[in-house]
């Protein structure tokens, strides 16, 4: 098929085998830079969300990093997506859910609320600890709804998209979780 384009000139001048590799390396460098910028801008907020979900800063860091790794693996596909924020929450929540499933059972032992005598009090320390501990007693999806809705301030619709739930399901879980939180926290519940 190419016979027409065959030139009868000298043998190959030079091998340029590295060309493809070099352009790939350039693409990777650009991708890594863009991805790192995303981690720098989104990392802290995502890690705090993870902490509210798991009550442990080290685990939160680990979960966040797992979520970022998954995002990096799909970066070419998701980087131009309009809703990278929501997407990152979804990936994180799925990592959290997986982690909870793996250690399921152990989470129910939280009926005894641990003391945190060594934590430096700031503001209302009891309440601060109480809120996170109370959250830990909710079903993990209910906790996710509360965290996304009230800590992250996403709309009901966005929360529904992130969690793959319907809007009525999010509203129902939100109402149920708030009621439960009210019961757990008693007078501390900040509804006034």
């Amino acid at each position: 098929m190419t016979d027409s384009r065959v030139a009868t000139s000298a043998p190959p001048v030079q091998e340029i085998r590295s060309g493809w590799g070099a352009s790939r390396r350039r693409a990777k460098a650009a991708r890594d830079e863009e991805f790192t910028a995303f981690v720098m801008s989104a990392g802290t907020r995502l890690r705090r969300t993870a902490y509210l979900m798991c009550r442990d800063w080290h685990l939160a860091e680990d979960l966040t990093q797992q979520a970022f790794a998954k995002m990096y693996a799909a970066w070419n596909r998701i980087r131009t997506g309009a809703n990278l924020e929501a997407y990152s929450r979804r990936v994180l929540m799925n990592v959290v859910f997986d982690q909870q499933r793996r250690r399921s059972g152990s989470e129910l032992v939280l009926a005894d609320l641990p003391d945190h005598p060594d934590r430096a009090p700031a503001g209302t320390p009891e309440l601060r600890v109480a809120l996170v501990d109370a959250l830990a007693q909710l079903a993990v999806k209910d906790r996710a709804v509360l965290v996304l809705r009230h800590a992250e301030d996403h709309s009901v619709e966005t929360v529904a998209t992130i969690l793959g739930l319907s809007v009525p399901a999010v509203k129902m879980r939100n109402a149920r979780a708030l009621t439960r939180l009210r019961t757990l926290l008693g007078d501390d519940f900040p509804d006034r």
Binding site: G43, R47, L52, G123, H150, A151
Partner: peptide, 16 residues
């Protein structure tokens, strides 16, 4: 108010 409580709940963020 609830939002503030959540903000305070992450107030002991050790950073990373």
């Amino acid at each position: 108010h609830l939002r503030d409580q959540f903000d305070r709940a992450v107030g002991d963020d050790p950073g990373a």
